[in-house]
Lab assay of single mutants.
Amino acid sequence: VKKMAKAIMADPNKADEVYKKWADKGYTLTQMSNFLKSKTAGKYDRVYNGYVIHLD
């Protein structure tokens, strides 16, 4: 998940494709939050927020 999150950060155009894969795998927002937690607070906030919007 972190590898794909980094791919989104490097190229935001990949976001919809990645979010669809995550949704197809049934990842919940709680799971995504836990996967994307980082020592650098807020590092993956943009990715998480994008997934929230995708699921909505």
Rank of each mutant, 00 (worst) to 15 (best):
V1Q: 02
V1M: 05
V1P: 06
K2W: 02
K2N: 02
K2S: 04
K2A: 05
K2V: 09
K3C: 14
K3T: 11
K3R: 13
K3F: 09
K6Y: 05
K6A: 12
A7N: 07
A7R: 10
A7C: 11
A7T: 10
I8W: 00
I8P: 03
I8S: 02
M9S: 03
M9Y: 05
M9W: 05
M9D: 02
M9H: 05
A10Y: 09
A10Q: 12
A10I: 11
A10D: 13
D11Y: 08
D11A: 06
P12Y: 10
P12Q: 08
P12A: 10
N13T: 15
N13Y: 11
N13I: 09
K14W: 07
K14V: 13
A15I: 04
A15V: 04
A15R: 07
A15F: 04
A15S: 11
A15G: 05
D16A: 13
D16V: 10
D16N: 12
D16R: 10
E17Q: 09
E17P: 05
E17V: 08
E17C: 12
E17M: 10
V18Q: 04
V18T: 09
V18E: 02
Y19N: 00
Y19K: 01
K20S: 10
K20P: 04
K20A: 11
K21E: 15
K21N: 13
A23W: 07
A23L: 07
D24G: 08
D24Y: 07
D24K: 10
D24N: 10
K25V: 11
K25S: 14
K25F: 14
K25W: 15
G26I: 05
Y27R: 00
Y27N: 00
Y27A: 00
T28Q: 03
T28W: 05
T28L: 04
T28C: 05
T28F: 02
L29F: 05
L29M: 07
L29R: 08
L29N: 04
L29W: 04
L29Y: 04
T30N: 12
T30I: 13
T30C: 13
T30R: 10
T30A: 13
T30P: 08
Q31V: 07
Q31C: 09
Q31G: 02
Q31T: 05
Q31Y: 03
Q31E: 11
M32H: 00
M32Q: 01
M32V: 13
M32K: 00
M32C: 07
M32T: 02
M32L: 14
S33C: 14
S33W: 14
S33A: 15
S33I: 11
S33M: 12
N34G: 12
F35D: 04
F35Q: 04
F35C: 08
F35I: 11
F35L: 13
F35S: 03
F35K: 03
F35R: 03
L36P: 03
L36H: 02
K37F: 09
K37E: 12
K39Q: 11
K39N: 13
T40W: 09
T40S: 10
T40M: 10
T40L: 09
A41D: 13
A41M: 11
G42R: 04
G42C: 07
G42V: 03
G42H: 09
G42I: 04
K43S: 06
Y44T: 00
Y44H: 01
Y44W: 08
Y44C: 07
D45Y: 07
D45V: 07
R46D: 15
V47Y: 07
Y48G: 01
Y48R: 00
N49W: 15
N49H: 12
N49D: 14
G50I: 05
G50P: 00
G50T: 01
Y51W: 03
Y51L: 03
Y51P: 03
V52A: 13
V52L: 10
V52G: 07
I53A: 15
I53L: 14
I53T: 13
H54M: 07
H54F: 15
H54D: 02
H54K: 01
L55N: 03
L55A: 02
L55Q: 02
L55E: 01
L55S: 01
D56W: 14
D56A: 15
